[in-house]
């Protein structure tokens, strides 16, 4: 594989296998009895099969596919949340995962406190977050509510704060799972603009989307997943086109 300095993400033949327990055993008693009786049966399920790609620094890759095709599993493997059963993932640089906006917010804490908490989750200390605090609240337009516990926020406000934090810390690699579909139109526009700024500033983007049109606009390359396998991989215009044709065909 290409391991030169200017590669941000290398996914090398990754497979992800799940054991679907036929009956979930969450009770100790059941587990012991079944273990003794050798009744612990699993059906194997591959969420990802032999997926490989590499993404250059500053590049952008969109992942498309139908529901359950393994898109989110792939993102989680790259974010380091899950470990692939086979294969390796190598990420160079810091990652800001936006798999869900505001993941890790504590509803009881205020916006201000959550900025520091979320920053720490992404590996940054108070001094680092202090420098960026004003920009974060500016972007999220939340100065009025900065001392309100986020449990009282609307879902849009919640998402705005999450997006502002994740993009303001300027990580090397940004991992997004359909986040551009949240918030009102004005905010979506603002997010898109911010993403474009980041991309031109050298951030690497990995984007998952249902909508091939957005992927085509945002990303230079695309990868089409079908039942955990790579169906097509390459120039986003070409791959998204093929995917749209496929969607027309099945509907």
């Amino acid at each position: 594989m290409d391991t030169t300095e200017n590669t941000a993400i290398i996914a090398d033949h990754i497979s992800m296998k799940f054991n679907l327990a036929q009956e979930r055993t969450e009770a100790l008693k059941e587990y012991v009895i079944k273990k003794i009786k050798r009744q612990l049966h699993y059906t194997e399920f591959y969420a990802l099969r032999d997926v490989s790609f590499s993404l250059k620094k500053g590049g952008s890759l969109g992942i498309i596919g139908r529901n359950g095709s393994g898109k989110s599993t792939l993102l989680k493997c790259i974010a380091g949340v899950m470990f692939p059963t086979k294969g390796t993932v190598t990420v160079t640089g810091s990652i800001a995962p936006l798999i869900e906006l505001g993941a890790g917010f504590d509803p009881e804490l205020t916006a201000k406190e959550n900025v520091y908490l979320n920053g720490a989750v992404l590996g940054h200390d108070r001094a680092f977050m202090n420098e960026r605090f004003d920009e974060i609240i500016d972007f999220a337009e939340l100065w009025e509510f900065v001392d309100v516990p986020v449990k009282n926020y609307s879902s849009g406000m919640y998402a705005r704060l999450g997006f502002a934090i994740a993009t303001e810390i300027k990580a090397d690699v940004l991992i997004c799972d359909e986040i551009l579909s949240v918030g009102d139109m004005a905010f979506q526009q603002k997010c898109r603009k911010r993403m474009e700024e980041l991309l031109s500033g050298g951030t690497t983007l990995l984007y998952v989307g249902q909508d091939p049109q957005t992927v085509e606009e945002m990303c230079a390359e695309a990868l089409w997943l079908d039942h955990g396998r790579v169906r097509e991989y390459g120039d986003s215009y070409k791959v998204c086109g093929a995917y749209m044709d496929y969607l027309d065909e099945i509907s």
């Binding site: 640089g93 720490a120 989750v121 940054h124």
Partner: peptide, 29 residues
């Protein structure tokens, strides 16, 4: 930037501990 491969998690417990010390601080607060 440090090169990180997630497969080595656990082997570098001390290294993780130092990077994520602010997180312990925030979680305790």
């Amino acid at each position: 930037m440090a090169k990180s491969s997630f497969r080595i998690e656990g082997k570098t417990a001390l290294g993780h501990f130092l990077t994520y010390r602010p997180l312990i601080h925030e979680l305790v607060t």
